[in-house]
């Protein structure tokens, strides 16, 4: 007889033992494969509250699982495993292990917001996707991607000085991602730029690596932005019950 619902058996639940004897019966090897139970034995009621506390997740408790978000989803059309309706349910019911199985695709939301307009109950699924990705990151379930690290470096410079300095961004990004600064393509690019660059511009670039240029009167704006960002971060970390620096890679603002 064929195995019905075979799709419900997950590879990680198949247990095969090299050498196992139970009550004198040898149950080793492929022919004695066990399947771990699929039973859900508890709800984690914190998750819904935590994701509700992050920007975008506020209305998650409205969802009644109609599936309009998934049906309208741009990414779902390409990747059927990308299912906002399902994740919203997992979050609401606190099925953490089930949610974490999809941690590497939740961030793929492209923010087209079709779901936002399709949702009959204003759950704001696009916001929930962002909040969930943020939650996964804050909880330390997903490492920061290189592009996130690049964005952070970029943002930090703008916040600190009101300007960006390309050379510094590349240097810091490469240092933070532990990539060698002297890469063939980079050297080639720098040489070609240098060959065609007006002397004055080259001088200014060199100078700005030594003396950091700032937007005039920036310090007030910097302090306001820094205060707001810190305030939000503290609030969100508190909502998740995280300590000051738990699960977080250090983010240092220069001066």
């Amino acid at each position: 007889m064929p195995i019905h619902e075979k799709n419900l058996i997950r590879p990680e639940n198949l247990k095969t033992h090299e050498n196992l004897t139970i009550d004198g019966v040898n149950v080793s090897g492929h022919w004695s494969t066990f399947i771990a139970p699929r039973v859900i034995t508890d709800y984690n009621e914190k998750i819904e509250a935590e994701i509700s506390a992050l920007p975008g997740g506020e209305h998650i408790n409205r969802c009644w699982q109609c599936g309009s978000c998934t049906n309208s989803c741009t990414v779902n059309a390409v990747n059927p495993d990308f299912n906002p309706r399902y994740w919203i349910y997992l979050i609401r019911m606190g099925m953490e292990s089930e949610l974490l199985r999809d941690k590497d695709i939740i961030w793929q939301c492209v923010s087209c917001n079709k779901c936002t307009y399709a949702c009959p109950r204003d759950v704001f699924p696009e916001g929930v996707m962002k909040a969930t990705a943020h939650w996964l990151e804050l909880q330390g379930h997903t490492p920061k991607s290189k592009s996130t690290i690049f964005d952070e470096e970029f943002t930090e410079q703008v916040v600190a000085t009101g300007k960006i300095e390309e050379g510094r961004i590349i240097r810091n990004f490469f240092t933070k991602t532990r990539q060698p600064l002297f890469q063939e393509w980079l050297i080639e690019m720098a040489m070609r730029v240098a060959r065609h660059m007006p002397v004055r511009l080259g001088f200014l670039m060199g100078l700005s690596t030594v003396i950091r240029p700032r937007t005039r009167g920036w310090s007030k704006a910097r302090d306001a932005i820094t205060d707001y960002v810190n305030e939000q971060e503290v609030k969100q970390r508190q909502a998740l019950g995280l300590r000051e620096n738990e699960g977080k890679t250090g983010r240092q603002h220069e001066n």
Binding site: R38, V39, I40, T41, D42, Y89, M93, E98
Partner: peptide, 12 residues
């Protein structure tokens, strides 16, 4: 059975 997750439940 949680029909949306297609998994059995035994919840306290």
């Amino acid at each position: 059975e949680d029909t949306l997750v297609k998994r059995p439940i035994t919840i306290p």
